[in-house]
Amino acid sequence: MTIPIALLVMLSWLAPQPDMTPAGFKKIDLLVAIENPLDFDGWQVVAATHFGPAHMTVVEPNVPFLFSSKYGTRVYAVPTGATLPEANSFGHTERSEFSEFPATMPPVTAASTASIFSPIDQVLTTLRIVAIGEDGIEFETVGSERFDAEGQNVGWLRLWAMELGLVAFGLVALFLLRRRRFKREAL
């Protein structure tokens, strides 16, 4: 029973971080880049949080902005020439300045938490605007990349290195344990 108890103690030691991140997990930054925000005459593209702290970004081609599912980051198509509200000018929950503009939540499917052992620090989702209409903005997903804390791309081999190592270790250990049993039985 020593090993299970030790593992449970280890789990409880992995205390939750702020913002309701489960024990053993860390928050990761979700970034969104849009390839072609300037391709649509008469519109400028703006990303803004819908809830919580006000945060607004005028979207530039391939320049990432922070996405928050918690604060409902939406991408707005604002007519060129319309006065953009300053981020500090609207209140903590008031977003009425944006309500008249076509808006869509960008299709970000990456999770906002990862295991504390994961090398992932940021996930960048690259999108392309297909159309802007009265109902909102239509996106297509171009791709998704993962980055570590140093900004290096995290490939699948690095992402799965620990799992592959555990599988290999488990397989070899089981093989050795089976051989040990046969030796024991042969005596």
Binding site: I3, P4, L7, L8, M10, L11, L14, P22, A23, G24, F25, A110, A111, A114, S115, I116, F117, S118, I120, L159, W160, M162, E163, L166
Partner: peptide, 15 residues
Amino acid sequence: MIDSNASALLATIAV
């Protein structure tokens, strides 16, 4: 989500 899930592994092994 495709992250390594070390916490789930530890919990599974313990249980």
